[in-house]
Design a binder for these strands. Sequence first.
DNA 1: TGCGCAATTTAGATCGTTCTAAATAGAGGA
DNA 2: TCCTCTATTTAGAACGATCTAAATTGCGCA
Lengths: 337, 337
Amino acid sequence: MKQTKVTLGDVARVAGVSRATVSLVVRKSPLVADRTREKVEQVMADLDYVRDIGAARLRNNSSRTIGVIVPNLVNSFFTEFLSGVEQMMGDDDRVVLLANSHDDPVRQSQILQRFRGHGVDGVILCPAEGTDPELPLRMQQWGLPLVQSLREVGDKVTDYAGADYIKGVQLAVRHLVESGHRRIAFLSVFARTSAWAERMEGFNRAITETGAEDAGIVEAELSWEGAARSASELLKLETSPSAVLCFNDVLAAGLMLGLRRAGHEPGRDIAVVGLDDLPLAELTYPLLTSVAMIPEEIGAAAARLLARRLLKPDAEVERSIVAPSLMIRDSSAYHAG
Amino acid sequence: MKQTKVTLGDVARVAGVSRATVSLVVRKSPLVADRTREKVEQVMADLDYVRDIGAARLRNNSSRTIGVIVPNLVNSFFTEFLSGVEQMMGDDDRVVLLANSHDDPVRQSQILQRFRGHGVDGVILCPAEGTDPELPLRMQQWGLPLVQSLREVGDKVTDYAGADYIKGVQLAVRHLVESGHRRIAFLSVFARTSAWAERMEGFNRAITETGAEDAGIVEAELSWEGAARSASELLKLETSPSAVLCFNDVLAAGLMLGLRRAGHEPGRDIAVVGLDDLPLAELTYPLLTSVAMIPEEIGAAAARLLARRLLKPDAEVERSIVAPSLMIRDSSAYHAG
DNA sequence: TGCGCAATTTAGATCGTTCTAAATAGAGGA
DNA sequence: TCCTCTATTTAGAACGATCTAAATTGCGCA
């Protein structure tokens, strides 16, 4: 049933050369004569030879495999990110080991151990909430190249690919202010990640810069249901905000739902702005004004950073920050009242 | 910089036993004495030993790695599916190699070759449109266990995990008919996959069964923009359908958008029903009536099937079909007129 | 004390590839 | 013809685990 695998040795025997020569052909070495190469390639095709990358790695330490750890696969932000990584790595003939930490640092370390055992060449990590800031150092000691993305722990000790949320939040707030809004609330999340800190920083800066009023910060669970439930809390704020900026589009969409349930029409009675510009921003009603972060591009950038790091392990640490752009739609209108 | 890796031999030397014994401990064999086991485990912890799974596979042919190929990562149906696979495999201490075929059979074969080279234990495949029906046989010849999921090529020659779209479509149509709709159109897609065939079959059966009128079939590109563009075509049907059943929720959401752009209010002037019940079904306006397929569960089922197949390579072919359930919301109302 | 038997442990070959160091071939020059 | 290069090719030892088959240990009992 299970026929024996075709190995280098088989190819060598049939082609009448040594294993070493076939190995050179496989790796496209210029050392081998054209006639020999052609012959060997012919035999490889005839026998349907597939090089065993695991065995190769044992000798030369490159598995052409990288690991990616994301905190969830539900938010399409992460899956688009993943798509970017996978695309770029595939073009480079590398393969992606995927894992989901569920935002749990313990699970995350288990995954890293597994990845180590599989001999991945490097890791792209969006660190789980509560990740030990020492993790990057530990990984350095393991000799495991690391690129952080979307979130970051430690003090800029690794390569990093992300979006400029400070700028992104500023764009959103400026737009609201320019549309006439003065009292702006922020619908945030419980999780204390660098992604959270960055948005908070952006919000505070933007409020100062524009002279608008910080109408209060409400925290919700990171799901549309959580956001919908928080609508009442937002409506109860004694500042009665005329606009709510949301941590991301999932929250924004959920909030619009909750507002409508509470009898307030988003985009008319109260403005809602999201962050990330997920595809769903164009499917909600009213269409959601959001700040595009292009996660696919961030993923591709992370992949590029890792590829570079693998090539030059001692290169200087680099950061790749994708610029945000505001997508004005219908949810952010201002109606005096 | 890169310190040498800790190997079985290192552990053996420090613990004062042979490599073979350490190997037995690693594999939790009952053959080894308790005292020895404890000692070895202590040393493994002290030295931070990580077993090299690639090297192990070379000898025993199990990489504890499986490959998953999906046709895209944008539709959240596939990412939830993926999430189910990853979850189940992770619990089983296996790792997932992820790849995106972009619905291109050529790319798909390249990926399969890569997977072969990496020595995956098996593959979960959602075949790209236009996949050669012989593929499963070829993979069998390679000795590469295969579970198909969500789509299928060949004549039920492999294990398969999917949803019952025939039943799902029937549920949707019956619901529409019971609500008073008589003229029902179907918004389909260009791609001719088994997933397409199944829905068509379901639609035809349901029309016959309920005695409703097949108001026409319109095909669109599989994206919300494509669906939005197709709205005018649907509105031009001389049957003037009172309800449109859509291939999936992405199309349904896009269609609602297109209808509104054309001045028709979905859920009032014309009913819209989706399939899959993606999270976005609860974020659209009006809330989208849809048929839940629980992709995460399908993914888990696919993983279970593959695990079983790896355990018993000669077991009979098995199919695991998740039952659909109708989620009635606001988009499917009937307003006489 | 010596033997049989089960419980542990182990030496050494092996998986498929790459690397090192050296061998061989071929071409041109003296 | 013989020698020196350069261009190709190769034998054999790695890599880190597992497997096989055999060796060792220890215990109970005659």
